[in-house]
């Protein structure tokens, strides 16, 4: 079996989508680790959730998982919406109390 890179590249399959999601995941991880703004960290978490969702839906397209994968992806989107709403309410409370959203300066456990 002859394996050629060009041929592999010209036919996007499961692996291509998985690689896109892997790069998206590492970019989200980069944002979570290297930023000290709470909202940037939240955006990084959204990137990570999206990359996981691409994985689930790629598996639902190409393997036996079929529509169950899409269903799990739907629940991931629902939970991401709830998470974003609650997290931003918490961020607004933190800003009201500490007058900053820099993660390094919010180190008080007892308000």
């Amino acid at each position: 079996m002859e394996f050629s890179i060009i041929e592999w590249l010209s036919d996007p399959g499961l692996t291509h989508f998985l690689i896109v999601s892997a790069i998206l995941f590492s970019l989200g991880l980069m944002a979570v680790l290297s930023k000290r703004n709470v909202i940037m960290v939240l955006m990084g978490v959204e990137l990570i959730l999206n990359s996981a969702n691409i994985n689930l839906i790629a598996f639902s397209r190409f393997t036996e998982l079929s529509l169950d994968g899409q269903m799990i992806g739907l629940f991931v989107i629902i939970i991401a919406a709830a998470e974003a709403a609650v997290a931003l309410a918490i961020v607004l409370n933190i800003y009201n109390r500490f007058k900053t959203i820099n993660l390094d300066e919010i180190s008080l456990l007892k308000g």
């Binding site: 709470v38 909202i39 959204e46 899409q70 989107i77 959203i101």
Partner: peptide, 29 residues
Amino acid sequence: LYADFLAATQLLVYVGGILILILFGVMLT
């Protein structure tokens, strides 16, 4: 990936909802 309903949901929930929330968070903080 043939997930048309999820694509529509993604547009509505993420672009229409979460992104607006994040922009409000940026503005208010």
